[in-house]
């Protein structure tokens, strides 16, 4: 849910669920100092992934965004930590997902149709992929496969040609993993990934600026602004 403290005291919350009903008449109900500031990922410990799951995740995300001189790999950008915090929090629980039944397979056009919340899906899918790897690559877990075999397996998940056990839809899992990996790579460092804003620097995105007025007519020039995250900005408050 939204950040604790001031925000909770002001009755502000994440999304529309769970807030008390209010009646307003005669004035704009604005509260001085109230801010629905984002919840930062704190600490460095892993709370969701087991050590074996962490090995899988590190191996998988580093194939999705591998190391090279252009910029950080997903592991260098701290994506596994980002994923851990996301899965340990509201996203992992399926906040903003409808997970009620009945559950049916559906056409690709109908989108995500599993009963699993994202956290449940990661848990089940990591095991299912490791089981698949063991059965098809001489007993090895995914993390210990050669890069070429990792890529082969990942491509199979992406295309849905690899069939997984435990009720896991391979394509849906892959799509979620890739999306979440890019989120961890490119989101504000506040959420634990995009370490040192290196992914932003790699592409040339200057970050959480809010005023480019000066540069609108300066076509084709390099914007010399330093890269900033939300925390580096004036107006940021840890409420």
């Amino acid at each position: 849910m939204g950040s604790a403290g001031a925000a909770a005291a002001a009755g502000i919350h994440d999304g529309e669920l769970g807030a008390p009903p209010q009646t307003y008449t005669g004035k704009v109900p604005w509260q001085e100092g109230a801010a629905d500031a984002p919840p930062a990922a704190l600490g460095t410990d892993f709370r969701f992934f087991t050590p074996a799951e962490r090995s899988f995740i590190e191996a998988a995300v580093n194939r999705l965004i591998p190391p090279d001189p252009a910029g950080p790999s997903a592991v260098e950008a701290n994506v596994p930590f980002f994923l851990d915090r996301q899965l340990a929090g509201p996203f992992g629980r399926g906040d903003h997902y409808f997970l009620g039944g009945p559950w049916k397979k559906g056409a690709a056009e109908q989108g995500y149709q599993m009963r699993f919340s994202p956290a449940q899906l990661y848990r089940a899918a990591i095991k299912a992929v490791d089981d698949y790897a063991a059965a098809n690559f001489h007993g090895a877990a995914f993390a210990s496969l050669a890069d070429a075999d990792k890529d082969k397996l990942l491509k199979g998940l992406e295309a849905g040609t690899v069939q997984l056990g435990d009720g896991v839809d391979a394509k849906s899992f892959f799509a979620m993993l890739l999306q979440n990996t890019k989120e961890g790579y490119f989101s504000d460092p506040l959420y634990g990934g995009n370490k040192d804003m290196a992914a932003w620097k790699m592409i040339g995105f200057p970050g959480a600026h809010y005023d480019y007025s000066e540069w609108v007519t300066r076509h084709g020039e390099k914007v010399p602004y330093p890269t900033v995250g939300m925390k580096g900005r004036p107006g940021w408050s840890e409420s």
């Binding site: 604005w30 509260q31 801010a35 500031a37 989101s187 504000d188 506040l190 004036p234 107006g235």
Partner: peptide, 13 residues
């Protein structure tokens, strides 16, 4: 001011 102030409005995630 409360819900999308310039201090944290630019949050893609």
């Amino acid at each position: 001011a409360t819900d999308f102030a310039t201090g944290f409005a630019q949050d893609e995630l």
